[in-house]
Simulated assay, not measured.
Amino acid sequence: MFWFIAFAIFFNQLVWMDIDFKALLIHLTFLQHLFPGQYFKYDYLHVSWTLTIELVWYFVAFLCAARFKRNPAGITLLFMVFSYVWIFWGSSYFPSQATMEPGLKYFFVNNNVINQLPFFFFGAYIAVKNPRFDKAGLACIFLVTVVLSSAWKVHFPDPIFITGFGIAALFLILKDMEYTNKKYVVFLSEISYSFYLIHFPVITIVSEKIENDALVVIVSIAATLGFSYLSYRWIEQPFMRMAKRKSENSMLKGKAADSIA
Score class of each variant (00 low, 15 high):
G164I: 09
E178N: 09
F88Q: 03
K41S: 08
G226E: 06
T204Y: 12
A136K: 13
Y58D: 02
Q13H: 09
F119V: 10
V144Y: 11
F156Q: 12
F10M: 11
G226F: 08
A169T: 03
N130Y: 09
L78K: 12
S91A: 08
A8C: 13
I173E: 00
I53Y: 01
P118Q: 08
I126K: 04
L51S: 05
Q38K: 06
F68M: 07
R241Q: 10
F156C: 08
D213A: 14
M251Q: 15
I141D: 09
Y193Q: 01
A124S: 12
C64M: 14
F40V: 10
C140S: 09
N115S: 12
K175L: 01
L14Y: 04
L78Q: 10
Y42F: 11
K22W: 00
M100V: 08
F239S: 03
I235D: 04
E178C: 05
S247Q: 13
D18E: 13
F94H: 05
H199W: 05
G74F: 06
V113L: 07
Q13F: 04
R233I: 11
L188V: 02
M242R: 09
I5H: 04
I162S: 01
F142N: 03
L51F: 10
L24K: 00
W86G: 00
W86F: 13
L78E: 07
P238S: 07
A127T: 11
L55P: 01
N110R: 07
N249K: 15
Y106I: 13
T224C: 05
K22Y: 00
L225E: 02
A243I: 00
K255R: 14
I26T: 07
H46G: 09
T145M: 11
K175G: 02
V47W: 03
W3S: 10
I203F: 14
P157E: 09
K175E: 04
V15A: 13
S231E: 07
K253V: 08
A243Q: 07
Y193N: 00
I191R: 00
A214H: 11
Y232N: 03
A214V: 12
G123L: 04
P72G: 06
L28P: 01
Y196P: 01
I126R: 02
I19N: 00
N12Q: 12
M177N: 02
I87S: 08
A73E: 01
E208M: 12
E54G: 05
G74W: 07
Y193A: 00
L25E: 00
D134L: 10
T50G: 04
A151N: 07
S96D: 12
S220C: 06
K209W: 14
D213R: 12
L63D: 00
Y106S: 14
F21M: 06
I114M: 07
R241W: 05
D18P: 04
F165G: 11
Y84C: 12
F2C: 07
W234N: 04
F11V: 03
T99G: 06
Y179L: 02
E101G: 05
